[in-house]
């Protein structure tokens, strides 16, 4: 249900948050949801941070994922995302801009949005902070709520999970409301 709220065909969604906020876990959930239904997803990984072993354990069908590693080259990552967004047939194109993303120019951001509109691709931009601004139809901010530790004794032996809070930053076409929309999610 969370993925359906997040991803929209032909639109761009931005998911931002600091490290350990749960944004990458939510990205993995999106990849799982898309690939389990037999559809194709592409991930442009700017910082080479994607963990295929963990994704496979989470249920992602890796053979339906096109992984493009930009090795820290942000301009190339943006070009790769632009190419993929113009290729109809991908259900999801995710651009992980990493930890220190420069803000995209207005022209580049709206170019990405237009490409997604024309091809019907759901474009998801994940990063530490907002980079596409008003071009995103939906902007979600993530924040860590609390951690859960597990272990038989007083000293924890493993990290059991993390609860994250997502709140709506921007929603295109939605009326301005005073009450913030919030959602909690556990990974």
């Amino acid at each position: 249900m969370l993925v359906h709220q997040l991803l929209r065909q032909g639109a761009m969604t931005e998911l931002v948050g600091p490290l350990s906020s749960g944004r990458t876990s939510l990205l993995t959930l999106c990849l799982r949801d898309v690939t389990r239904r037999g559809r194709l997803a592409a991930l442009v990984d700017t910082d080479h941070a994607f963990d295929p072993v963990g994704a496979a354990a989470a249920g992602v069908e890796l053979r339906h994922v096109l992984w493009v590693r930009a090795e820290g080259q942000r301009r190339r990552a943006l070009k790769a995302a632009d190419l993929l967004a113009r290729c109809p047939g991908f259900a999801l194109v995710a651009l992980d801009v990493g930890e220190s993303p420069p803000r995209l120019s207005l022209a580049a951001a709206f170019r990405l949005r237009l490409a997604a509109q024309r091809s019907g691709v759901a474009l998801l931009v994940v990063g530490a902070r907002r980079v596409v601004g008003g071009a995103a139809a939906l902007s979600i901010a993530a924040r860590r709520d609390r951690l859960a530790w597990a272990g038989p004794g007083p000293v924890p032996r493993r990290l059991a999970g993390m609860r994250s809070e997502f709140h709506l930053v921007r929603k295109q076409g939605a009326p301005a409301t005073t009450e913030a929309e919030r959602l909690w999610w556990t990974a």
Binding site: M1, L19, S25, H48, G54, A55, W184, T186
Partner: peptide
């Protein structure tokens, strides 16, 4: 009531 279905905690690797 707004709690969504649980997922798996992901790791961002340093390579």
């Amino acid at each position: 009531s707004c709690e969504a279905a649980a997922g798996t905690l992901a790791l961002r690797r340093l390579r």
